[in-house]
Every structure is written in C-alpha cells, then in structure tokens.
C-alpha cells in the first residue's frame, strides 16, 4: 500500500482503538497491531501528530506506583473517524462501478 495512505489508515485505526475509552501506548500498539503492522516507534509519531491536530488529548493517571500517560479521543477525532467512513463509502461506490464495468467487458 502507498505509504501516505498507510499512514492515514494507521491514524484512523489508532483513533478507532480509542472509541471504547482512553488507552495507553503499550495497549494501543497491541490493539492496532491486530489490524495493521505497527511498532512501538511508529506509534509515537502518529500519537504526536493526532494530538497536534486536536484529534486526541492526553492525561496522566497513577498506575502501579508510576504516572501512566493516557490518550483520549476528542470530538474532532470522532469527526475524523466519521469522515473516513464516509469517504470509504464513496470509494466503495467507485469500486463497484469499476468492477461492474470490467466484468461487463470480460464476458
């Protein structure tokens, strides 16, 4: 897949993983990793980028005697997920059109 496109997909996957509630780095890598390959070091820039864009915010909470950083979805982040799904539907229609045309001519 195209690198830029992959990046965009990862962004949305991370946001989607936060739909159930705030999460932390280690868990996000596991969760998103189930869908797309992502490493600890690739997740970091994604989180930073999404935070800068206002799609998520962060807070700290005590856990096991340390302060763990949590990431939380914002309204803007939810909007982005909706945008992605809407765009995908648009894409799907085009896909169907192309596919039908191709099947029509190959017969």
């Amino acid at each position: 897949m195209d690198t830029q496109r992959k990046k965009g997909m990862l962004d949305v996957c991370v946001l989607a993983a936060l739909l159930e509630g705030p999460s932390y780095g280690y868990r996000l890598v596991r969760e998103v990793g189930a869908c797309m390959p992502v490493s600890e070091s690739t997740l970091y820039p994604i989180l930073k980028r999404l935070e800068t864009a206002g799609c998520l915010d962060t807070y700290r909470e005590a856990y096991n005697g340390r302060l763990r950083k949590y990431y939380r979805l914002t309204a803007q982040g939810e909007e982005r997920i909706c945008g992605f799904l809407a765009e995908w539907e648009e894409m799907e229609r085009i896909y169907q059109f192309v596919k039908e045309k191709r099947e029509g001519t190959s017969r």
């Binding site: 992959k6 997909m9 962004d11 864009a53 765009e87």
Partner: peptide
C-alpha cells in the same frame, strides 16, 4: 488537511 487524511 493533508498527508494520508483524505487518502483518495
């Protein structure tokens, strides 16, 4: 907005 957001 750019960079993999509006992917298509």
């Amino acid at each position: 907005k750019r960079r993999g957001w509006r992917m298509f």
